[in-house]
C-alpha cells in the first residue's frame, strides 16, 4: 500500500484537454448569453440604421448601453474562440500548423475583444 492517493486524485487533471467539461459548458453558457445580447445589437442597429455620427456616439456613450455592449463583446469573443478551436482541431492535423492556428485564434479573438472594449470604454467615458 505505497500509494495513499484516491483514484479520483490520480485521475484529476489528466486527459488531453485537462479542463474536463469546461469547454462544453462555457460554449453553452456564452451561446445562451449571446441570444439576448445579439437580439439587442440587431434591434439597436435597426433603430439607428440611418443615425448620424452624433446620434450614434450619443447612443453608444450611454453607460447602460456600454454595459450591454461590453457583455456582448466578451461573450461573443469567448464563444467564437471556443468554436473556431473545434474547427481547427477537426480540420488541421499537422501538429505545428495546428498549434500555430490555435495560437492565432487566441490572438485574433483577444484582439477583437480588446479593440471593441476600448472603443466602447472611450465612447462611454469620453
Amino acid at each position: 500500500m505505497a500509494d495513499m492517493r484516491t483514484p479520483l486524485s490520480r485521475a484529476r487533471g489528466l486527459g488531453s484537454a485537462k479542463k474536463g467539461t469546461e469547454h462544453f459548458w462555457m460554449q453553452r453558457v456564452t451561446a445562451l448569453a449571446n441570444i439576448p445580447l445579439m437580439m439587442f445589437l440587431v434591434g439597436a442597429l435597426v433603430v439607428h440604421a440611418g443615425s448620424d455620427y452624433t446620434t450614434m456616439t450619443g447612443f453608444l456613450g450611454n453607460p447602460f448601453i456600454g454595459v450591454v455592449m461590453l457583455l456582448l463583446i466578451f461573450s461573443a469573443c469567448y464563444h467564437m474562440r471556443l468554436g473556431l478551436q473545434v474547427v481547427i482541431e477537426d480540420y488541421i492535423h499537422g501538429e505545428a500548423t495546428k498549434l500555430l492556428a490555435l495560437i492565432a485564434n487566441q490572438f485574433f479573438t483577444l484582439t477583437i475583444a480588446v479593440a471593441c472594449a476600448l472603443a466602447v470604454a472611450k465612447l462611454v467615458i469620453g
Binding site: 450614434m56 453608444l60 477583437i112 479593440a115 476600448l118 472603443a119 466602447v120 465612447l123
Partner: peptide
C-alpha cells in the same frame, strides 16, 4: 467589422 465600426465611432 464590428471592431471597425466601434473603433471608428470612438
Amino acid at each position: 467589422l464590428l471592431a471597425w465600426w466601434l473603433l471608428a465611432a470612438a
